[in-house]
């Protein structure tokens, strides 16, 4: 198997200057991830699951540790990589799927979904055709494809978001509760797409409120619940 990610002693806390304090999120996390492997993060609210995903993506700044990523361009520590490299890796190899769409004024749903392909060098007509295919797959009504998603309902926005986030196969995919508020058709399309990407070698780390949705995909579980947490407060994940 090919190693994709090596996380070593990763520690994150938030310094809040106005309170003069630091809030610890997680400490000394270490794990490896192979191509095609699906890792589920579990733990109660506030255990640091989403924070870990954002730290790996470099939206959050880690305090210490290493995150070695094996890119097709070479091997690099994501925590110390130049920003220009992080931007490149986000375009080509590392995807982040959240439940929130960052819609832009006056940009249509199909243009938003086609954007990652355009940025990866695909021609405009090809990117648009592929975007429409995925909008249909996730159950976005055709009448909405040329509308602006800023006005869509939360569920419809999320479908557009998933189509955009999953249109381009990535080497590493970070999934932050992507099934929240999805209807059954979109959830089934999401699970099918994740299975397809996993089979093609995409490594995934996910946080799911209902992990049962992706039970068949999970290879490993990491529990971020602090060791001091009493058993009755632990949030058991049934897989």
């Amino acid at each position: 198997m090919t190693k994709v990610l090596e996380v070593q002693s990763l520690t994150k806390g938030f310094t809040m200057h106005h309170l003069g304090s630091t809030l610890a999120a997680f400490e000394q996390i270490s794990f490896d991830l192979q191509a095609g492997e699906f890792l589920l993060l579990k733990g109660q609210n506030g255990a640091g699951k989403s924070t870990l995903l954002r730290t790996l993506y470099r939206s959050y700044v880690a305090q210490s540790g290493q995150v070695i990523f094996h890119s097709r361009h070479g091997t690099i520590d994501l925590l110390r990589a130049a920003e220009v490299d992080i931007s490149l890796l986000r375009r080509e190899e590392i995807g982040f799927v959240t439940q929130f769409l960052l819609a832009r004024p006056r940009v249509t749903a199909e243009a938003l979904v086609a954007e990652p392909l355009r940025m990866a060098g695909h021609s405009a007509p090809d990117a648009l055709a592929e975007a429409r295919k995925w909008l249909a797959e996730f159950g976005v009504k055709q009448s909405l494809w040329r509308a602006y998603p800023t006005t869509f309902s939360g569920g419809e926005q999320q479908k557009v978001n998933l189509a955009r986030a999953l249109i381009l196969p990535q080497k590493l995919l970070l999934l932050d509760e992507p099934t929240a508020s999805l209807d059954s058709q979109a959830r089934a399309a999401l699970v099918a797409r994740l299975a397809e990407l996993k089979a093609a070698g995409t490594a995934m780390i996910g946080v799911f409120h209902h992990p049962g949705d992706v039970a068949d995909l999970i290879d490993r579980v990491i529990d971020l619940t602090p060791e001091t947490t009493p058993d009755e407060e632990r949030n058991d994940v049934v897989v």
Partner: peptide, 9 residues
């Protein structure tokens, strides 16, 4: 992150 951080590209 320093301006002279290691570069992949």
């Amino acid at each position: 992150i320093a301006l002279d951080a290691p570069r992949l590209v």
